[in-house]
């Protein structure tokens, strides 16, 4: 069996946090943004990553792409551990893994024009002539639905959707194999969201891309993903094929998440019962013992506090980190 394109094994990301007004030599507290995360991404697949704000989705993506250091675990790219690479080797990886960011305008350098922005990965990883680069930039811009004669314009002259297209063009110009999309549509209008999601889906089909698609909006993720992973407070609580996860959610958190997606029909929407999760996301500085979801879980029991539930394969390719999800309880 060949190694999957990307596999994340027991990834930990902990940020040191200095308490306010502490001495410089005080030992900083650790903020656990990602804890023992396991993910597998096969070639050509789109893995959706969902979870509420602060659940560590973006941090996980940044640890994969290397802008945030992993404090534990491994990130295997085609069977090679990239967390052990030296900085130069790590930089070379930028040709194969690229990222699209949440805030389209902030992701573009305001002092560079669009042509320079889109060409930067080419200038970094290839030694094409300036003329060839211009041609490639023109082709790529057309491919993402921008007029190629806009190359001399600056980011502030574009709308949010156009800026996101520029960001996508920059990410795809080196023909990467994996595209990480960090909430690429949440800063956009709904109508533009659909356009950008369809653009990404089309590009994926045409270029044979694999994608890690992060969003907190389940309906967007369901539309584009082949598999979905659900995160809560830095832990992955459930992974399953997209259809199975939506039709048969097992973890109580996933159930609550799916129940919170509004139905676009006022009559049915008003009629259905909607269990709303109580409380707030606990602090990742001081996560609850055992299962981190137990403080808000409708079916929590006393022994949930003792040990962290492992991610168990319950159905083919359907893993859940809750041993009690099928033992009843009101959800």
């Amino acid at each position: 069996m060949t190694a999957p394109l990307l596999s994340v094994e027991g990834l930990d990301v902990t940020f040191p946090v200095m308490p306010r007004g502490a001495w410089p030599w005080t030992k900083p507290a650790g903020l656990q943004a990602v804890s023992k995360a396991d993910l597998v991404l096969q070639r050509g697949e789109t893995l959706g990553l969902v979870g509420e704000s602060g659940s560590g989705k973006s941090t996980l993506a940044r640890a994969v792409i290397g802008t945030v250091p992993a404090t534990g675990g491994r990130v295997m790219w085609k069977g090679r551990d990239v967390t052990a690479l030296d900085p130069a080797g790590r930089r070379k990886l930028g040709r194969e893994v690229q990222m699209v960011f949440q805030d389209p305008l902030a992701a573009l350098n305001p002092r560079m024009n669009v042509g320079q922005i889109v060409a930067e990965p080419l200038a970094t990883h290839t030694d094409l002539s300036a003329k060839e680069r211009r041609t490639r930039v023109g082709e790529m811009m057309e491919r993402v639905g921008l007029l190629p004669n806009l190359v001399n314009r600056y980011p502030h002259e574009f709308s949010g959707g156009q800026c996101q297209r520029i960001g996508i063009a920059r990410a795809l110009i080196t023909k990467p194999e994996l595209l990480i999309c960090d909430e690429p549509v949440s800063a956009l209008d709904v109508s533009v969201q659909a356009q950008v999601v369809n653009l990404l889906a089309g590009l994926q089909r045409d270029m044979g891309l694999s994608m890690l698609f992060i969003a907190h909006d389940l309906s967007v993720v369901r539309h584009i993903s082949t598999r979905i992973a659900v995160m809560y407070l830095g832990r992955i609580v459930e992974t399953a094929p997209a259809a199975a996860l939506v039709a048969d959610p097992r973890h109580p958190y996933t159930r609550a998440l799916i129940a919170s997606v509004p139905i676009p029909d006022p009559v049915r929407e008003r009629a259905r019962s909607r269990p709303v999760l109580e409380g707030e996301l606990p602090s990742p500085l001081n996560p609850p013992s055992g299962c981190v979801f137990r403080t808000r879980c409708p079916i929590a029991r006393p022994d949930c506090a003792t040990a962290r539930p492992p991610l168990v394969e319950e159905a083919p390719d359907h893993r859940v980190a809750c041993p009690y999800h099928d033992r009843g309880g009101p959800v």
Partner: peptide, 23 residues
């Protein structure tokens, strides 16, 4: 949505100048 245009070098050479922040 997608606008088809020529992306060859001659089309790019006539691309309008943008308004940079410096300008």
């Amino acid at each position: 949505m997608r606008t088809a245009t020529l992306s060859d070098a001659s089309a790019l050479a006539t691309a309008p100048k943008g308004r940079s922040l410096w300008a």
